[in-house]
């Protein structure tokens, strides 16, 4: 299946190019906001995107301590809510409608390019999916430019800045949680949790381990409102010592663990973005109106996934 194979040296070079591009997009967002007189917090915003961009672009070559310091620095304007949105160049309805008139359904082609490239790279090459996504993005940009000469490099950069600013510092949450997981591991948090859970849950029984892990993911996610935060703690503390240590398939247990957490997300008002904000946007009367429609699916999927994990473990 792997028709194209490259060496680790070439692979590292390609990945470094990916991180450089991403870093420069973030640095561009920082500089654009620094120069933007409409932004109420130019310096904080620039510091956030700039520190992230430098750490991302040059992390390969910087000493780890410097990158670590940049990560801490990046958090400071975010914590003090000094990362703001500046001038927004949102396209008008008339503009998008007229572009649709010219381009039509062909717009789906560049829209799907990224996923197609990512999948093809994963299936047919040994090159990282990250490089596949990058190639897909580039092809997609070329197509968009071919459709309309108005789609210049500056438009792509400004639109990416617009979306970065709209998402705000919270878009860094998964990566920061990944860092937290690394620190948990280095400090030996998993062993301590495992030692506590051992008093309640018998070790060595994979089926019991899977059920505790899956339901634990749901409950943790419901309390925290965030499956990404739950999976780092739960996998380190319960998934690894109680399930994976006894030979269960890490692909199945790790990934389904996350989507068991998503079942928790469907059931909790803590996940306000998904369950409470829509109530406001749609002017609904019942605050629980979205959650009520999700509980049944969540239960069915939880049971399905537990059985699936047990069968494939």
């Amino acid at each position: 299946m792997k028709l194209i194979q490259i060496g680790t040296g070439a692979s590292t070079v390609l990945l470094n190019i990916v991180w450089l591009i991403i870093g420069f997009v973030a640095i561009y967002a920082g500089i654009k906001n620094l120069l933007d007189k409409e932004n109420p917090s130019r310096y904080g915003t620039a510091l956030f995107w700039g520190a992230f961009g430098v750490a991302c672009a040059f992390g390969t070559w910087l000493p780890n301590k410097v990158t670590g310091a940049l990560v801490l620095i990046m958090c400071i304007p975010a914590i003090f809510r000094k990362v703001k949105v500046g001038h927004e160049d949102t396209p008008t309805k008339e503009y998008t409608a007229s572009q649709f008139g010219k381009i039509g359904m062909k717009i789906f082609l560049p829209a799907m390019m990224v996923a197609i490239f990512s999948l093809c790279f994963a299936l047919f090459t040994n090159i990282s999916s990250m490089v596949g996504i990058t190639c897909g993005t580039i092809v997609s940009m070329i197509l968009l430019h071919a459709y309309s000469k108005k789609n210049t490099p500056k438009v792509f950069l400004n639109d990416s800045e617009r979306f970065l600013s709209m998402m705000g510092p919270l878009c860094m949450l998964p990566q920061l949680l990944g860092c937290l997981g690394g620190v948990f591991n280095a400090a030996g948090v998993g062993e301590v949790i495992a030692g506590l859970v051992e008093n309640v849950v018998p070790k060595g029984n994979i089926v019991v381990g899977i059920i505790v892990y899956a339901i634990g993911m749901v409950l943790f996610t419901m309390i925290m409102g965030n499956a990404f935060a739950a999976i780092t703690v739960m996998t380190v503390g319960i998934g690894a010592p109680f399930v994976l240590a006894y030979g269960a398939n890490p692909v199945v247990v790790g990934m389904l663990g996350l989507t068991c957490g998503y079942c928790g997300t469907l059931c909790t008002p803590m996940a306000a973005n998904f369950n409470i904000v829509p109530v406001a946007i749609l002017n609904m009367k019942d605050r629980w109106g979205v959650i009520k429609n999700q509980v049944m699916t969540a239960m069915v999927l939880l049971v399905f996934q537990i059985i699936y994990m047990i069968l494939l473990s």
């Binding site: 649709f100 990224v114 940009m141 459709y147 617009r162 970065l164």
Partner: peptide, 16 residues
């Protein structure tokens, strides 16, 4: 990597 994809997300919206 989502930042890479953002290079086209906004422009896709802009183009209908």
């Amino acid at each position: 990597i989502f930042i890479m994809i953002l290079l086209i997300t906004g422009t896709l919206e802009r183009n209908g």
